[in-house]
Amino acid sequence: MKDLKTICSENITALIVLIFAVVFPIFNSAYKVDQFTGFYVTCLLSFSIILIWGYTGIFSFGQAAFYGVGAYTYAIISLCSDKNLTILAALAGIAIAGVFALILGYFIFYGGVNEIFTGIITLCISIVCETFIVQTSGPEWKILGVWIGGYNGLNNIPKIKIGNFVLNGVPLYFFVIAVVFLVYFLFRKLTHSNMGYALFGVRESKQRSELFGYKTAKIQTLAFGASGALAGLGGVLFSAWSGYVVPSTLSVDNSTVAVVMVALAGRKNVTGALIMTLIYSYFTHQLAASGNVFSNVILGVLLVLIVMFMPEGALVELFKKADMLLEKLMGKKKKTA
């Protein structure tokens, strides 16, 4: 990815998306604004996959699990008392998801286990987490006095409240897009920072990077923890936006959708992921396609095809082609000037 100062198709697109996001509430109903808030929240899950898979080269099925941990933590803490604990709940959600990921990462990466096995381990953990919550239907399962809710999940989760101000509707929308674009901006900075290059080195060849002085196990573990925290942030905002959380929030299906979106756009490109998540979420909503019985088949086949034929991602290819066109146009301008 080029840096933020270059004029290129990616940066232009990002700017357009930013403008689109900011003016959206002016031209759309409250319902639509609320709907899109949810789409932007999902972007955080996609970003966490870019961080761990695209940047660090570790494939994790567990991102939805961390997303779910964030969502459930926020729900439980904000529900457990009559006082307004929502801000604490939000921070706790991020922290617990992050710590969970760090600990898991420690066991995986300091042992030096094959990155591929991370896929297996995170898949098993996701399955176990989801099954655990579904099976714990009985009211004897309480954390902080709040029943986990089993199959039905938790309802009436309070919105984030700062003082007397409740984050709902349009203010919540702007809060969420502020968070999303802040994270986006940090990602762009990361790509050109020492930390970013450390991740790329570990991704491209763990062994070789060791010989350039990188402590690869530490880097992998920290990246995994950060991506867990990021997914947790997404989960927190999901709870705070939707007001409910169900076991399927941390299901493997949820992870899969996000993985497909990221793979389709380009796993190493955060602008692509942002756009693809919005587009994909919008269309599946329009077509009520997520309830469609064929959706998983299409997703699965798509994933196979992308991995086989377009591993760099479709949007990334588009950006490249657009850049070539742009260069031609700018070249022409220089000649006529």
């Binding site: 290059y197 790329f200 491209e204 060849s205 070789r208 010989l211």
Partner: peptide
Amino acid sequence: GVYEELTLRENMRIA
């Protein structure tokens, strides 16, 4: 022992 998928300068930077 170079990073083939990356560019020359990216390789140098990582090193």
